[in-house]
Each structure stands twice: as structure tokens, then as C-alpha cells.
Simulated assay, not measured.
Amino acid sequence: MKAVLVAALAAFSLSGAALAQSETYVHPAQPEGADLPEGLAHTVFASGCFWCTEADFEKLDGVVEVVSGFTGGRQQNPDYYDVARGRTGHNEAARIIYDPSVISYDELLHHYWRNVDPFDDGGQFCDRGSGYAPGIFPVDAEQHAAAEASLQSVQALFERPVIVPVRDLTTFWPAGIEHQDYYQTHPARYQRYRFGCRRDQRLRQIWNGVEEG
């Protein structure tokens, strides 16, 4: 559904030239995070619509910036519509840039799980297809170990299989500027989309009443 929405071009900027994005997709991010200011870290999560993933994480204290984009695929400079149609092998995803002295990777993982349907690998909510499949993309061995441990902890909460993969990050490609901060630049459209997808209703159905060990 989201792929058919027409997004008007919106101004987009990030504080710091090192984090600048471009509508021509020329600033891919590598796992080592060489473009990050000193003291910051990053990771990548996929939970369906990247507009929603971005909105879900930007509200957290310690998160400096969230960038909508694509990862996990084989094509250079993937196109939004090709990803949505499952032609490139990419997931819609969000790069989380954060201050680890304020928020830990484990806390980001906890927030991720509460904002994803962990039982659906055919898309997320109303968005169907491989381009919307969920995934955790750690950037190093430490994150990978934490992600795997988190996956096992979540699996212990449910009797049915949790099918969110943990995949090492290769390259993250930022989406065009019309997709960045969409929930802020197009609030009415975003809210209609999110409500129409019943994203929050489904999340409440999954997570309300779940007791953690």
C-alpha cells in the first residue's frame, strides 16, 4: 500500500556534514561507520515501512538521527519502487545513529521488538513482499551476539516461532529526501497510512500482556 502513495518532495537536512544525505543516493553507509562523528554509534533495523521505523526510533532519548533507506540486497543504488516490488533483495530499513552513553544497543533492541510483528516474514502489517520483511542488521560481532541473545529472549516469550533474521550489515543505502522524516513533513498522510495499516493495533495485540522474564 505504501508504495502507491505519492510523496511530495520535502526539504531534508541533518546536523553535521558527515551525516548529510542526498536524493541521488550517493552516500551509502558501511558497517564500520566511518562517517559518524566521534562518540556516536549506529545500527540498522527493518520493521516494514521505513517511515514508521524512523518515527518509532526518533522519539528515543539518545537517538541522534534516524535515516530511512535500504539494506540486505545485491543492487547498487536501489530504487524505492524496485525494492517495494521485491526486485533487488533489499529490505526497507532505518539506520539508527545513537549516543551509547545515553542509550544502549540492548535498549534499542528492546524497542525494536515492541515495534515489529515477529511472526511475519512476508512483509509487515499491510505492506507485503520481501522488501518489507523484518530484520536486525548488526554492524559488528558485539552487536551480533547481543541481537542473537535478544532473539532468544523474545522467542522464550512465545510458543510460536519468532522469524526475524539477524543478518550482518553490508551496505546501507539512504532513500531519497522525499522519504526522510516523512512522519513530520506529511503528518496527516502518515497518520492515515499508519492507522489504515493497523500497525499499532497489531502491535498491541502481540505485546499487551506479554510478561518478560
Rank of each mutant, 00 (worst) to 15 (best):
K2F: 14
K2P: 00
S13I: 02
L14R: 12
S15Q: 11
G16R: 01
G16I: 02
G16E: 01
G16T: 02
A18R: 07
A18C: 10
A18V: 03
S22K: 05
S22I: 04
T24W: 07
T24K: 02
Y25F: 14
V26M: 11
V26N: 12
H27R: 13
P28M: 14
A29H: 08
E32P: 01
L36D: 02
P37S: 12
E38K: 15
E38I: 09
G39Q: 06
A41R: 09
S47Q: 11
C49D: 12
F50N: 07
W51V: 05
G62L: 11
V63T: 10
V63N: 06
V64K: 08
V66K: 05
G72Y: 00
Q75R: 13
Q76D: 14
Q76P: 04
D79H: 10
Y80C: 10
Y80V: 07
D82S: 15
V83A: 13
R85H: 13
T88A: 14
H90C: 11
N91M: 07
E92T: 10
A93Q: 01
I96Y: 12
I97V: 15
P100C: 13
S104M: 06
E107A: 15
E107P: 08
L109A: 15
L109G: 12
H111A: 15
R114G: 10
N115R: 09
N115P: 02
N115V: 03
D117P: 01
F119P: 02
F119R: 09
D120P: 04
G122I: 00
Q124L: 08
F125N: 12
R128L: 12
G129M: 05
G129A: 12
G131Y: 04
V139Y: 00
V139L: 06
D140S: 14
D140G: 15
A141M: 06
A141I: 02
E142L: 07
E142D: 12
E142F: 04
A147F: 01
A147R: 01
S150R: 00
Q155M: 06
P161D: 07
V164C: 08
V164I: 14
P165Y: 02
R167P: 00
D168P: 00
T171Y: 01
F172D: 01
W173R: 10
W173N: 13
W173Q: 11
P174V: 03
P174D: 06
A175Y: 07
A175W: 03
A175H: 10
Y182S: 14
Y183A: 09
T185N: 13
H186L: 12
H186I: 03
A188V: 15
A188Q: 11
R189M: 14
Y190D: 03
R192G: 06
Y193H: 10
F195G: 03
C197W: 04
D200W: 04
Q201I: 12
Q201P: 00
Q201A: 15
R202Q: 13
R204P: 02
G209C: 08
E212M: 05
E212V: 13
G213F: 05
G213K: 05
G213Q: 06
